[in-house]
Amino acid sequence: MAVRTLKRSRIKDAKGTTIELILLLCAVSAVAAIFLIIWFIFSEGLPFVLEAGPQFLTSSIWLPTDSFSDGSWGIFPILVGSLIVTFGAIGIGTPLGVACAVFLAEIAPPAVRRVLVPSINALAGVPSVVYGFFGLVVIVPWIRGQFGGFGTSVFASWVILSIMILPTIISISTDSIRAVPREYKEGSLAMGATQWQTIRSVMIPAASSGIIASVILGMGRAIGETMAVLMVAGNAVSIPNSIFAPVSTLTAQIALEMGYAAGAHRQALFAMGMVLFVVIMILTGLANLASRRRVT
């Protein structure tokens, strides 16, 4: 074999820089695409918000028209609806999801886990219209039968959305519980703590940053979900007076009206999208803050 020189190879160098360039290009275009979307939404929505003023957020009368002066532009009930629906779904989905994750990570025998984990991950890929349809033909009539009213309601949205965010919460939480060092668990058990005490006082706190991350992602999915909510929420622009009353969300309202909207109405929908974007940023920020506080 020939003696290898220590001289750098031009070809290899070029290959390296090319790969680096391609990666850079990918990263830059991904980020650019996101900023492009943000810029687009804000450039369409911001002028409207400035024109409509704070009443856009505080007024409860939503009567959109193509011309600004003929319409009433209050999205307060829709904004509140989005928050109610999201937090309710998180409130139901988190304990259920974490309980499932604990079961999968700590209790289920390996054979059960091998079947359940892929099935749960597959659930994350089911299109939302399927969940919505399930809600429409199963949950909504059931609620109407049990509690009266339309059936399409806050409660129906909670049920469907919490089911939809379960796969996200379960799979990420399961991973983070399984990633807790075994030493913690052994340390706790070796002191005579029961399995439940160990899970509650050591495993879940140690996995909390992952669990919180899963809830943040779930929240993102819940607040951004459109089709399924559209099908089961009832989409009434008014603040629901009970959990069995219909409700509208920012996403559903945008989707409902986008097809027809022109002029000021169209701008108003972009403004709603902008509000949604800001709300998501705030919620994610708060959640991140909370998770950073918890980790000692």
Binding site: G234, A236, S248, L256
Partner: peptide, 10 residues
């Protein structure tokens, strides 16, 4: 009042 559905079929 009332709810909003987005198609004839619904």
């Amino acid at each position: 009042g009332g709810i909003v559905l987005s198609s004839t079929g619904a």
